[in-house]
Design a protein around this nucleic acid. Structure first.
Lengths: 399, 399
DNA sequence: ACTAATTTGTTTTCCGCCCTTACGAACAGG
DNA sequence: CCTGTTCGTAAGGGCGGAAAACAAATTAGT
């Protein structure tokens, strides 16, 4: 009989005192970020650290410009009032960038998670040279950075949202079919000298939902834009899979013998609920604001539009029911462009989810994103600054 | 515009020196477990700790009876040879228990991960009173514990594998339809005074595969026994979902209009690849060793058996293709009773997976478990002792 | 108004743990 | 036999959190 523990089972790094300090700095930051302005004593109680330790940690974060101390806040009860700690609104900030098929975007998010600058310009990027697109994006982002500086903010990291796959090489887009990109090294854009990370727009939209939404920390975020993508958020982190390709909801089979898909298989979800398929069934052509036109037709009671949305919702529901059975998320969030179509998609989805999920998966766990289209760019900005919150030690104010 | 970080985004605990020590003890244990007998210096190099720190940690683990020191091992190179450290084969051990529909099992696994005692007795447990079953299991497990003690082992924790759902309450089975159990508090069994944990057999089978297999640490383990269950292993841990119900592969829809399932929905995978459906299509009745009979018929070239297995493999493949698109695992492992049917299931599965997965998911990533039926019980024993390896601080030799 | 009680934040002391450095031990090679 | 190398251990130092004590600021009670 074979024995022994497989090598794959090992994990973890050595814990040192520096690592301990680092972890506790992060703990204070995330605690203040999550639970609003609060006193040192409240932080201590919530984290389990002593008040003395919290004081020391707060000192360090304060002198780094990450935490600010407002005046006394009367607690209502007896005793000396605590001094409210909050994340600085003038410290480092995150720069979010987005390349869409029809637009470019840039935003700046401060430490508190508030969007302080928001720029979005129309641009026909389909099959345009990547260098050109990135040059224009650089211009947009420089405007955003300028406005941020004027408000006392200092963008220190950037995240770019793209409608495509990001591979192993950091800062590069492996494939973005709708843009016609292939192996584009987007870090070239980094003219600001900021470290730039690239991620899929669906993943970033999900993160925005995680950080802004009423939020569970385990959910599936469905983001229908050109294709149908899903992001699995597990324990507050996007689950990327072994090779980074997780979340390809659009090519989960709905009917094994269904229509042939561009991917070569039959009956993929995209053939039922993809933008192109829905528009075709609704009798609409593709175009810039096709989704908006579809929504207005549905509002007017157009039979074909309503039927197409009904069928799309049903197919989405069937597929998501399978995903729910497999993953058991606390919620399913409908985001991206389809958030605007929620009114007409939801009934079919709910019906399918209700009949096809075991253990009475609660129907109220199916949500529509409040961010909708703004999700990816918002998420990019938040992800950029979130790195500092989750590891304040990387931030040196002297830089 | 809404702002602020959702409360869900917080995580992590305070790091203290005790926690640091604890983590490093675990690091040494897992390193030695994963990379065989090795010297202190080798542990230091691999973990990043200093040789001095490793010495101190090893001392503590040695005096707790968890590590043993063999004689000098010449490294071949110049210099003083190191003394080989290995996990003790006489220290604490894990007790694995299993209640199946047709059998009871108990095993004892030592720190090295080796199965030292293995007992399995036939028993007709379907719709039998839980108390009776557990009493008989207690008898079996006492025999196993006795044999283990005779070899110098000391079972210190137990894990029970059941074909059912384990809920929030620790140590209780929420539902096990094939046994007819409902809200059974299995911890009552704990006559040995050992702490007992209960888990689903599919999850434990997956863990056995993780720890014994050549193993990736992200994979989907399909375990077909009575129902069809799957366990998602993510980063070396079983992913249980928000409510602990993840992995219900059997009720993922294959054909939305297919035959009605016991769950109320239509076209669930179980209707195509479940044991009952396959046996019916193959013209076989249910029975104790039905799977074995099916395999022998297939070996003999029986048309109906081959056809049934072909169709089952295809349905499994379709469903798994969807799961692979969603989760992007490094491997899919076919375990449980169906491992014995791999020869006939695999072709259809491979075909479906090849056509329906994007990004050419490598066909060699579809594996058949070597453990097969022995998976859950093995995994239970390993899980029991693994707790001590992953947190040696919980183990007090004085007990 | 004045005191007691309570809560906050800081200071001081202490302890644990890892790191650095140094040293003895054990082996291979010339 | 001597040298170079590697292994394990020991001593000293620094860092970081815990525990306890103290000062500060407010409420409650009389």
């Amino acid at each position: 009989m074979k024995h022994g523990w497989a090598a794959a089972a090992q994990s973890g790094r050595a814990a040192s005192q520096q690592g301990m300090r680092r972890q506790n700095l992060a703990l204070v930051m995330t605690t203040v970020a999550a639970h609003g302005p609060m006193s040192r004593a409240a932080v201590a109680e919530r984290t389990g650290l002593t008040r003395a330790a919290v004081s020391s940690l707060v000192d360090e974060l304060h002198s780094a410009g990450l935490l600010t101390e407002s005046g006394s806040v009367p607690s209502g009860r007896a005793g000396r009032p605590g001094r409210a700690l909050a994340l600085s609104e003038r410290g480092p900030a995150g720069l979010g960038l987005e390349v869409g098929v029809g637009h470019l975007g840039a935003c700046v998010v401060d430490l508190r998670g508030e969007v302080r600058v928001w720029l979005r310009v129309a641009a026909a990027n389909r099959n345009r040279r990547a260098e050109e697109v990135l040059a224009e994006l650089t211009a947009v982002s420089e405007r955003a950075v300028g406005e941020a500086r004027a408000s006392g903010l200092r963008p220190v990291a950037a995240v770019l949202a793209v409608p495509g796959l990001v591979g192993d090489a950091p800062g590069t887009v492996e494939r973005a079919p709708n843009l016609g990109w292939r192996d584009v090294a987007a870090s070239e854009l980094c003219a600001h000298g900021l470290p730039l990370e690239v991620d899929n727009e669906a993943n970033l939209g999900a993160l925005a939902e995680l950080w802004q939404g009423a939020g569970a920390c385990d959910f599936i975020h469905v983001s229908a834009a050109e294709g149908i993508g899903a992001a699995l958020v597990v324990g507050g982190r996007v689950f990327r899979g072994a090779r980074g390709f997780a979340g390809e909801l659009g090519h989960v089979p709905v009917r094994p013998d269904g229509p042939v898909c561009a991917c070569g298989a039959r009956g993929c979800l995209e053939q039922y609920a993809g933008e192109e398929a829905v528009l075709r069934q609704a009798g609409l052509g593709r175009g810039e604001d096709a989704v908006r036109r579809l929504a207005s037709r549905a509002r007017d009671g157009d039979r074909r539009a309503l039927g197409a949305l009904e069928r799309a919702g049903e197919a989405l529901g069937t597929t998501l029911a399978g995903a729910v059975n497999l993953v058991d998320p606390a919620a399913v969030v409908l985001g991206g462009a389809y958030a605007e179509l929620g009114d007409w998609l939801l009934p079919g989805m709910r019906r399918e989810l209700a009949t096809r999920t075991l253990r009475r998966w609660p129907p109220e766990a199916l949500l529509v994103s409040a961010l909708g289209r703004r999700g990816p760019l918002t998420g990019a900005g938040m992800a950029a600054i979130r790195r500092i919150i989750e590891d304040p030690a990387v931030w040196r104010p002297t830089d």
